[in-house]
Design a protein around this nucleic acid. Structure first.
Length: 595
RNA sequence: GACUAUGUAGCUCAACUGGAUAGAGCACCUCACUACGGAUGAGGAGGUUGAGGGUUCGAAUCCUUCCAUGGUCGCCA
């Protein structure tokens, strides 16, 4: 059993013996003892006073005595104004270091011990390249997938590719008009960038057209409806829906360019998917299922033929599910996609949707609708809602050219990593390819850590100057300490030192900070999994690293004063590097051996 | 306007879910050093936790009234 539950049940037993009142173990709040007091764990005794019918201090005293005389790991205690500080037997920790902490799967629950979860993330439109906002989305979704896996879930990572609709038709129209047969090869451009270029070209030409129309006396609204370009885009969408061969052909070609570009970006980001869903495949299913629901009486139809769901009983509105002409809206295709997924994975316990917080209402509706359609998983589905990434000058605006491109940003981070590494000069002897891998890992760690350390639900500020900092509370700082630890372990190995399997020394107070961090990993992972919150893991990684860095500065490891001490520190260093590796892996961050 | 989230050091973020003197990083000041990898460590300064009221042994955290900011309220996605 882990220490805290162990103490709780010991406290419950002791409490009953002292005061004759039986309390559940979780009534005892156990927390880490603050640094300025002696002890390892603290039980807060104020809430116990009503049950013990004694003052908090007296309650604490008697409980402390009973715990020390019990057969648990408690060897001493002190009481400070109602706080019972417990000292844990030092050998408990050294045994723990060679026991639970030494397991290669430390922190992980057995895989498959929790039900299957599907995590959706990324899900971009196919008309524009990925930007900074997508990075937060991808890193979050990818990290949550790994955290859920560590918590024992089977995880299926998916995305829904928004490959259909007016947006891609706009790019197609512009390419036909202005493209002169340009391809990614002929332009020497990534496919997603090329298609994005035509999306912008469409927008600019469209603006000119509407401006002319407005000059000719049309209202802005009229002009935007009547501009020849928008009519052509709408016609293209109609042709696409009818399956017109030429239109579908061009659509496939341009989408394939985008996919090639995206794949490239995903590879650089280090994220991956188990299965892709395409809206062009799911929107029709959605329509069928909505009509089925209509037949079963869960939805209602208005005179014009549109299908609605009434959610007023759930405190929401009526919501449109299908237009009067039978065409799909956004909700329709999301229903279809969800149902297809439940069909594809019959053991699916829930779906997690990594989507920005502007769509909170949409997902509330979606989950209610899925419930009405009879899916019990609906109530466990979760919208992993995250806040916007803002720049110092405000929101990213494509119109003002302030959109931070994902490829550019990553390339910039790699460049900075290269500069700093070359200055440090620790990579001599590695070939170019191996060096490049180090630059990428270091640069990416800075970006991922920066975006993941903030609570997902909060908006966050992306200050380019601060985010490229590789010192302080950053990914590279964590990597740096990992590399130092690994370097020591390599040396030990080269000198023929084996890692101890049992320890003859016990930790002193200097070690306890580090051990306390290491010990909390399993709790951090399960908390992060149940709240879908990677920032908890990120902050843990930093706290652990800081503790090691500080310890490292003051205590020689290989040159420790005697062999037992050296063995102890070596074991501690090994647990540090491995646990840190686990934590960083959960963030999707790969660690280098040198930097 | 209604609903919803957020508001903590100059700036960017924490705070074990109601616990002890609210902690980190950046920036600023001081110090340490042949260094097992200095992309370092130790210290200082910096706070009426947006404001007021309430709940109790105890509040950044819960309730309430305001204030500010973002988001949503489409037969857009």
């Amino acid at each position: 059993m882990r220490l805290d539950p162990l103490l709780q049940s010991a406290a419950a037993t002791a409490f009953e013996r002292c005061f004759g009142s039986a309390l559940a173990p979780d009534q005892f709040s156990v927390q880490m003892t603050r640094k300025e007091f002696t002890g390892d764990r603290t039980i807060v005794c104020f809430p116990l006073a009503r049950h013990s019918k004694a003052a908090p201090d007296a309650t604490a005293e008697r409980l402390g005595e009973a715990l020390v005389s019990g057969d648990g790991p408690v060897t001493g205690f002190n009481v400070v104004k109602g706080f019972l500080n417990l000292e844990i037997e030092a050998s408990y920790w050294s045994e723990w270091l060679t026991g639970e902490a030494a397991g290669t799967d430390y922190g992980h629950k057995p895989s498959g011990s929790a039900p299957r979860v599907m995590v959706e993330y990324s899900s971009p439109n196919t008309n524009k390249p990925l930007h900074l906002g997508h990075l937060r989305n991808n890193f979050l979704g990818h990290s949550v997938s790994r955290i859920l896996e560590a918590a024992g879930h089977s995880v299926t990572k998916v995305q829904i590719v928004n490959d259909r609709g007016i947006h891609i038709c706009k790019s197609m129209v512009a390419w036909r008009k202005f493209g002169q047969g340009e391809t990614p090869e002929s332009a020497g451009m990534k496919g997603d960038k090329l298609v994005g270029k035509y999306y912008v070209a469409f927008d600019q030409a469209f603006k000119k057209e509407t401006a002319h129309l407005i000059e000719a006396g049309r209202s802005k609204e009229q002009a935007e409806k009547e501009a020849p370009l928008i009519l052509e885009a709408q016609e293209t969408l109609r042709l696409w829906e009818q399956g017109d061969a030429e239109t579908v052909g061009l659509w496939k070609t341009m989408n394939s360019w985008v996919y090639a570009g995206f794949e490239d970006t995903y590879r650089t980001m280090g994220v991956e998917f188990d299965k892709l869903y395409y809206e062009s495949d799911t929107y029709l299913t959605g329509r069928d299922r909505v009509l089925e629901g209509l037949k079963r009486g869960v939805f209602e139809q208005t005179d014009d033929g549109a299908v609605w769901v009434d959610l007023t009983e759930d405190g929401l509105d009526r919501k449109l599910l299908l237009r009067g002409d039978g065409t799909a809206v956004y909700m329709t295709q999301d229903i279809g996609t969800a149902l297809l997924r439940f069909q594809d994975f019959p053991d699916l316990d829930r779906q997690v949707y990594t989507v920005g917080n502007e769509q909170e209402y949409h997902f509330k509706v979606l989950f209610l609708v899925l419930g009405k359609l009879g899916f019990p998983q609906a109530e466990r589905c979760h919208h992993l809602s995250y806040g916007m990434v803002e720049l110092p000058e405000g929101k990213m605006k494509s119109r003002e050219g302030t959109v931070v491109d994902a490829d550019d940003l990553m390339a910039e981070m790699f460049g900075i990593a290269r500069e700093i590494a070359q200055e440090a000069g620790k990579l001599e002897g590695l070939d170019d390819e191996a060096q490049r891998e180090v630059f990428e890992r270091v640069g990416l760690s800075a970006l991922k850590y920066f975006l993941l350390k903030v609570d997902p639900k909060k908006n966050m500020m992306f200050d380019p100057k601060a985010s490229i900092d590789f010192y302080g509370n950053t990914g590279p700082f964590i990597l740096f300490n990992y590399v130092r630890g690994r370097s020591i372990l390599r040396r030990a190995h080269d000198e023929g030192l084996a890692l101890p399997t049992s320890l003859t020394t016990v930790p002193g107070p200097e070690e306890m900070e580090l051990i306390g961090c290491l010990h909390s990993l399993p709790d951090v992972i399960s908390e992060a999994a149940s709240t879908y919150n990677p920032s908890l893991v990120a902050n843990w990684c930093y706290d652990l690293t800081k503790a090691f860095s500080s310890y490292y500065q003051e205590h020689p490891i290989l040159a420790a004063e005697d062999e037992p001490t050296r063995d102890f520190r070596l074991a501690l260093t090994e647990r540090f590097t491995r646990s840190l590796n686990t934590g960083m892996h959960l963030l999707g961050i790969a660690l280098p051996e040198r930097m």
